[in-house]
Design a protein around this nucleic acid. Sequence first.
DNA 1: CTTCAGATGCTCT
DNA 2: GAGCATCTGAAGA
Length: 198
Amino acid sequence: MDILTKDFYTRDTLTVARDLLGREIVRVLEDGTQLVCRITETEGYIGRMDKACHAYGYRRTPRTETLFAPPGTAYIYLIYGMYHCLNFVTEEEGEPAAVLIRGAVPVANGDIIAENRFGRKEKDMSSYQRKNFLNGPGKLCRGLALTRAQNGLDLTDPAGGLYVRSGAPPDPASIQVGKRVGIDYAEEAVDFPWRFYL
DNA sequence: CTTCAGATGCTCT
DNA sequence: GAGCATCTGAAGA
């Protein structure tokens, strides 16, 4: 299956956010183990005009520096002191924008992902845990063992250990659109319909 | 099923 | 020092 190239990410952020649904994230661990999951939920963040974006108004700080990196770069940051969020940088280089990966379902090595999440194998998960496996940005990063150590990785270079492959595109009719989550401070941007999910 | 408090540390002012 | 693109467990309905 093909690895998504820089061209895929070098597009309008909302187009990329929608197009990422159904794609497969591959996370290669130190020992070569491949954790794979299929993207089911995304959100767009566009620094140029979006108060919810860390780089709103092209704001440049040590943290937002990654958003100014080339499209196809992983932007990972710590939130609430204990969780991480995974984003993919989009648009032309210099336009700070990204797609937050909010949810996914396991495709390969679910046992290892389950160990990372719950400290138990997939078959030992409760039904509650099955329902709430990777359906949130913090949960996803926990399951895939992603931290700020992976911030700035080049998603178009498989050698980096984190990339996305084409997967099977979803039925367009199954794509839902809605408001983004957890950005109550963002004034008019709270109502932007920039969340996409299956 | 629902609400709710608390955890925990980095980032920018 | 305030706030944050979240999650969990406990408790109640």
